[in-house]
Every structure is written in structure tokens, then in C-alpha cells.
Design a binder for these strands. Structure first.
Lengths: 253, 253
DNA sequence: CTTCATCGTTTCATATTGTGGAATTCTATT
DNA sequence: AATAGAATTCCACAATATGAAACGATGAAG
């Protein structure tokens, strides 16, 4: 991998672009300070982004905000995936029947990327909003969906993913040894579902399963919930729901 | 407005970036030909985009594809909007009860931008897939949602939108005169809903209404369907459903 | 097996552009 | 009216982006 951007001005303009996207709105001085660039440089970068319709400037406040063009490009990329649209009805039903958030992910190297996120139509009164976001990536080793995918591939391939992952203990429950992971994957294979037992985020558990496929599965889905909801009492029922929907999806594809 | 990009290399690298996003995957030579740039320039642009993680290169085919980073940025922008998440359950019910696609838009100058799109969980057998896409913009004057929004603002403001729009007859049904639009908006005001009567796309009709707000409404939603579904027989029922959901949303916000 | 075509990759002299310091303009505050 | 602090503009020149040419890889044709 290169150790610096082959095009310096690209680094600069994309820094400005991302800053505006991530902040939502920002003034010239704020961006200048945050990025450590000269303000006439930043000004020209913004003028360029405005010209290309990625950014717009509020007439009254002078602040810069992202346009929806990035949203449209993102949706163009996402919309090219066929599977999410086809499985969404099943995942919405899963979400509705459990009252919890459902995620669909796609494998991307040693990571998974969230490609859909379904909230129940009627949230339970004690539900919490999941911080997950479509487009975000996460390492496979500490995600229920990631482990489900690893369990559905040849063992050597799963081992390679482990070896290429930067293992760190995200919580005290995160699996950090090769042996433990191997056992875990064996368990997942025999059960047909994976559990993220507060391994990625304290207080959050999830039940996951792969989307069956003729080839090696590339997608997986999960129900995430506060650990208090997914306790020993409720777990079996949720597992049943997950496997039921998995079967329906399998039958329909 | 500037008549050329203030930063030439920005123009180039964003051209390459958009090309890769829109095509889904492309080889160096293809991009070079399409954009009329020197191939070593394009190669360096791609190297830069790879460095910034917007693009990746397939190891086997050598082709370049967009990563999910753009999706993530787009979702960051979209996720900053509060209203879509809150009204989605109502719109999903509207979609399910009618079996048609529902759109939520937000006003953006003289245009509307699609910020959500809901498909019924169980499509009717003769449903068609709407070409609309989140992030896409559309002029207000020829969209049901746009007319609904125009009808809910002061007349002079609606007139200004009309004056600043590039009016063209998208179909033979498109309203292209100021007088006709004025009458149309008066009708919408008295009825409380708008109809896109094949004005934007032949064969497609939609019923639209604004999302009520204390201030001037900024969002509107619509049901779109093939004209054959939304004929005179079915229209009253769909209108009732639209107004019913509008009321529920109003009560809940 | 050799040759050829076409793809992506790399190099480097130099033409061209992006840079940033300083001045200017604008607006809100005192 | 003066001041502060924001955004905007200018332009000499330092620095970079450019592209022609060469190179390496791969698959197809003979």
C-alpha cells in the first residue's frame, strides 16, 4: 500500500468533502482549523465541490452543507445489489415479530458491511436505537453475522480471515484466541446460527444466520437487541424466528 | 456560477470517481476512453481513490469497483434527517395496504429529493418496480409531491418556484402554463391531496400529500402506481388511505 | 512455442496548476 | 464609527499533475 496519497490535491479536496459530509454543516474557518489547511485553499476546494454539486452554501449563514448527490451515488452502489430488496420482506417480518432491529450484511474481505437495517414498524417501549449504519463495515471476528459467515466457509478460509484480522478485545467477551474461535465456529456449524454475546458492544447481543446460497454464502442477517431483551428466557424463541425466516428465504430464492 | 471547475484535477478525479460509482465496475482502458483523459493520469487518479478507500481493484480482472464508503457517507447525510425514520412505519402500512410503492421526498429549492422509498412487503402480482431512487432529485412542477408542497406554501412563493423552474413537457399531460398550474394548486389546496396524472412519466400516476408541520411543510409522500391500478374505480380508496395516514402522522408528530 | 495485441503499471522531464500570504469585502457587534 | 471576524479575491511562484514513452503481464492467434 502507498504510504501517501499519489495526488496531494485529491487528498485535500476529499478531506474537505468528507468533513462537510460528516459534520453536516460547517463554516470556512471551522473547516480550515479542523484540517490545518490555508483558508484560501479550503475556499477554492469548496468552490470546486459546489461546482460539482457535492456541496452547497447556505445563503444566510455562509455555512457549507452536503447535497444529496452523495446519497444518490451511494444508493446507486447499494441499488446494484440484488439480494437486499428480495429478502427485505422476510427481514421486516422478523423485525416486527420480535420488535427488534434486524441487519443484513454482506461479506467484504475480512469485514462485513451493513447493506440494510430494518426497524420494527412498532417499536417496543423499551427498545433502543442501534448505532449501526448502512455502509459501515465491521470485522467479521466480533460480529454475529461475521461468525455465521466464517462458519459457513471452509475452515482454512476462516483461519485465513482470522489471521488477516486485527484482533482486539472490543469487550471482555470478545473472542481473542484462535482455539476459542475454532470451537465457536464448530458450535455455529452444528447449530446453524451464531450468537454475538456482547462481543462487539457491551450490553448488545445478536442472533445471526447466513442467507443460504448455492455458492459460498456472502450475506448474513441478524437480530440485535439489548442483552436484557435477549436473555436465556427469550433466546430460544428468537432463534426459532431467525431459523424460520432463514428457511422462508431459502425456499423463496 | 463558475463556468469551469476552479480546480482542474478535482474535476478529473471526481469524474473518475463518479464513473466508477455509476458503472459499478470498469477497467482502466474503458474509463480512459469514456473520459478522454491520458491513461497514466487515470491510473494515478484511481490509485488515489484506492488510497482514500473510495474504489478498489479486483485482483483477478483488474477492474475497478466502488467501495461502500460512498454508501456510508450517503447514509451519514441521510441519517441526519430525523423525520424519515419517524414516519416510515406509517408509510410502510400505506404501502402494504395498497400494495404499491410509497415515496417520501424533501423539498430542495425548486426540486424535491427522494429521501425514502417503501415497497409493499408483499407485492401484488402485477406490480412494477418504480425507477425512482433515494437521493435523486426531480422538479416540483411535474411531481405529485412537488405540487402538494407548492400548494401548501404562499402563492407568491409557488409562483417563484414556477418561474425558476425549467418547464418542459415530460409527457403530454405535463402542466406547462402558469394559469393551469395556478388552478391545479387551488384544487390541491381545497382537496388536501395532489395527483400526478401521468405528468412526469407516461403510465404512472401518483397520489401525494404533505407531511403536516408547524412551519411551512418540507416533506411530502406519495403512492405511485401504474395508471391501470390507479384508475377512477380505485382512486377514491387510495386517496382515503393517503389522507388517513397523513392524519396518523400528524397526530403522532 | 512464438508472436502479437491489449491490458495495466511505472518513469520522469516539464508544462501547468494549486498554493498561501496578503489584501479586500462583508456583516454583525460594540 | 470602529472593530472583529467571517468569507472572498488576487497573483507570484513553488510544487505538483501531466502525459509520452517504455515496461510488464496476460491471453489469443498462428
Amino acid at each position: 500500500m502507498e504510504e501517501k496519497n499519489p495526488i496531494q490535491s485529491a487528498q485535500r479536496i476529499f478531506s474537505v468533502y468528507e468533513y462537510v459530509c460528516r459534520s453536516g454543516n460547517a463554516g470556512l474557518s471551522q473547516i480550515t482549523e479542523a484540517l490545518g489547511l490555508n483558508k484560501s485553499t479550503v475556499h477554492r476546494m469548496l468552490a470546486s465541490l459546489i461546482y460539482m454539486d457535492y456541496v452547497k452554501q447556505d445563503k444566510f449563514t455562509g455555512e457549507y452543507t452536503p447535497t444529496f448527490k452523495t446519497v444518490e451515488l451511494g444508493q446507486t452502489i447499494l441499488g446494484r445489489l440484488d439480494l437486499p430488496g428480495r429478502v427485505r420482506p422476510y427481514l421486516q417480518e422478523l423485525s416486527d415479530s420480535t420488535g427488534e432491529t434486524v441487519h443484513l450484511v454482506r461479506r467484504d474481505g475480512t469485514d462485513v458491511v451493513y447493506v440494510d437495517k430494518i426497524e420494527p414498524l412498532h417499536s417496543r417501549s423499551d427498545s433502543i436505537r442501534m448505532a449501526s449504519q448502512i455502509g459501515r463495515r465491521r470485522p467479521m471476528y466480533c460480529a454475529g453475522v461475521g461468525k455465521a459467515l466464517m462458519a459457513s466457509m471452509p475452515e482454512n478460509e476462516a483461519a485465513e480471515i482470522w489471521d488477516h484480522s486485527r484482533i482486539e478485545a472490543k469487550t471482555e467477551h470478545t473472542i481473542v484466541t484462535r482455539e476459542k474461535m475454532k470451537e465457536e465456529l464448530a458450535g455455529i456449524r452444528s447449530r446453524g446460527w451464531a450468537l454475538d454475546d456482547e462481543e462487539n458492544e457491551k450490553g448488545v447481543r445478536c442472533v445471526a444466520a447466513v442467507i443460504p446460497s448455492d455458492a459460498e454464502p456472502e450475506y448474513a442477517f441478524s437480530i440485535s437487541a439489548p442483552a436484557a431483551h435477549l436473555d436465556e428466557t427469550h433466546l430460544p424463541e428468537v432463534i426459532r424466528e431467525v431459523l424460520k425466516r432463514q428457511k422462508e428465504i431459502s425456499d423463496a430464492l
